[in-house]
Amino acid sequence: MNGSLHSSKVVDIKLKRGPAGLGFNIVGGVDQQYVVNDSGIYVSKIKEDGSAAEDGRLQEGDKILAINGSNLENLRHREVVDLFRKAGNDVELKVLQKSSRS
């Protein structure tokens, strides 16, 4: 990288829902801020053997910007959970990855 301390990038990640769902937990929302002054939705845990772990690109601390094209800005936590529940078996995530990637 060009010496930048805070470089993050937006990526699209497609996951297939498995027996245990998508294989990760989320935190955040306008009603339960996880990051100060940021009501975004963040990945709090990647579950072993889940779709997200098998794919390998989604990491704890990543910010989920959209689910199947639906923007998550200014949504409550429960609204985002409902979007995930209704997303179907093939789920496309727009993700802002944190900068500490190799």
Rank of each mutant, 00 (worst) to 15 (best):
I26G: 08
D38L: 00
L22D: 02
L83H: 10
L5D: 07
K94T: 15
V27F: 11
S44L: 11
F84I: 14
G50K: 00
L65G: 03
G28Y: 11
V35S: 12
K16I: 10
G18H: 01
R78L: 02
I46D: 05
K98T: 12
N68S: 08
V80L: 07
K9H: 10
L5I: 05
V30N: 05
K45R: 14
S8I: 07
E60H: 03
G28I: 14
L93P: 02
K14L: 08
D31N: 15
A53W: 00
V27H: 12
S100C: 14
N25H: 13
E92R: 09
F84N: 07
S51G: 03
G88F: 03
K47S: 04
G21N: 00
S70Q: 12
V10D: 10
G50Y: 00
V27G: 12
S100A: 14
Q32G: 14
R78I: 10
D38S: 08
I46F: 02
E79P: 02
G61R: 08
L22Y: 07
K86E: 14
Y34A: 15
L75S: 06
I26M: 09
V80N: 08
A87D: 03
L72K: 08
D49W: 00
G56K: 02
V91Q: 05
I67W: 02
S44K: 14
D31E: 10
V10N: 10
P19H: 04
V27I: 11
S7L: 09
V36K: 11
L22A: 01
A52D: 04
M1T: 06
E48C: 06
K14I: 15
V91A: 04
L96V: 07
D55Y: 02
I64N: 03
R85A: 08
S51V: 01
L75R: 13
A87G: 11
S99H: 11
S70R: 10
N89H: 00
S44G: 15
N74W: 04
V30A: 12
V91M: 01
S4A: 04
K94P: 06
G3T: 02
D82T: 11
L65C: 05
G40F: 13
D82R: 11
I13T: 05
M1G: 09
G56Y: 09
G23K: 00
S4D: 01
V30K: 14
K98C: 12
N89A: 06
I41M: 10
G50V: 01
A20S: 13
S4R: 04
K14P: 02
S4N: 11
V91L: 09
K14G: 06
G56C: 04
K63Y: 12
D31M: 12
K14R: 04
P19K: 05
V36M: 13
G28S: 12
E48Q: 12
V36W: 12
V91E: 07
